[in-house]
Amino acid sequence: MSRVPVADNEKSLQARRRFLQGLGLAGMASMSYSLLEVKAKTPASSDKRWGLLIETEKCSSGCDACVRGCNEEHGIDDAGDDLTRAQWIRKIDLKDELTGNETSLPVMCQHCESAPCVDVCPTGASFKRADGVVLVNKHTCIGCRYCMMACPYKARSFIHETLTEQKPSAPRGKGTVESCTLCVHRIDEEQDRQPACAVKCTEEAHSAITFGDLNDPDSSISQKLNTLGGSQIRADLQLNTGVRYQGL
C-alpha cells in the first residue's frame, strides 16, 4: 500500500539514521546562524520603516545607473516595448514651467503608508509589510491590474510575456503585477545591505540615493531628511510615501 517505491526495511533504517544525523546537522546549522548574525530570522517589524531619499541635485540627466542596477538585480530585460516591458524604476527629466529649472530623478514604487494599490487589491496580494515595504504577493495575484489603475505614480508593471531565466532571488512571471520591492531579499539578509539602485548609484559616484530606516532618528536617511528636507511626489494625496525627494 505504501506509495514510496524504495522502502524496504534496510533503506528505511538508513533513512532514519540519516534523519537523526540531519537533526544534528540542523542543530549545528542553527548555531552557525547565530554566528553569522542573521537578522531575517525575525519577521519584518513595524519598529522600522524602510525608505529612500533621492537627492535630485546629485542625480544627473542621462544617467540610468539605478535603473541598470535594478534590472541586473532582478533579471529585468530592458529590451522590447517600453509600454509592455517591466519598468520598476524610470528616469524622468523635468523642467519647471515658471523658472525653467531642470531636474532629473528616478521614480519607482513610493512605498506609501496608505497605499491605494493595497486598498484596491481584491485578493490582498498587494500588501504592505510591517516595515513599510509595499509588495505584490505573486502567489495570490490574479493579474486584474486594479492596483495599476489605482497607483498615482504609475509604478507598477504587468508582465505581458512569458519570462525565462529568472534570478533565484527575484521570482517573476507572466500574468502577475510587480513593482519595486525595495530589494527586500537584500535588506532582509543582512543589516546595512542596500538596495541595488542605491549601490549602483554610489558605485557610479553619484550617491544620490540614500536607503535607511525612517523611524530611526539616528539613521543617515533621517539625518539627511532633517537637514536637507524631503518632499513627496503628489503630497496632496497624503499617502505618506516612503520615498522622498530633495530639491524637487
Partner: peptide
C-alpha cells in the same frame, strides 16, 4: 514558508524552493 517569507520577511527557515 513561502507565506512567512513573502509576507513577514522571515528568510532563515530551511524549506525554501531556492
Amino acid at each position: 514558508q513561502r507565506d512567512e517569507t513573502v509576507i513577514e520577511g522571515i528568510r532563515s527557515e530551511p524549506y525554501s524552493l531556492v
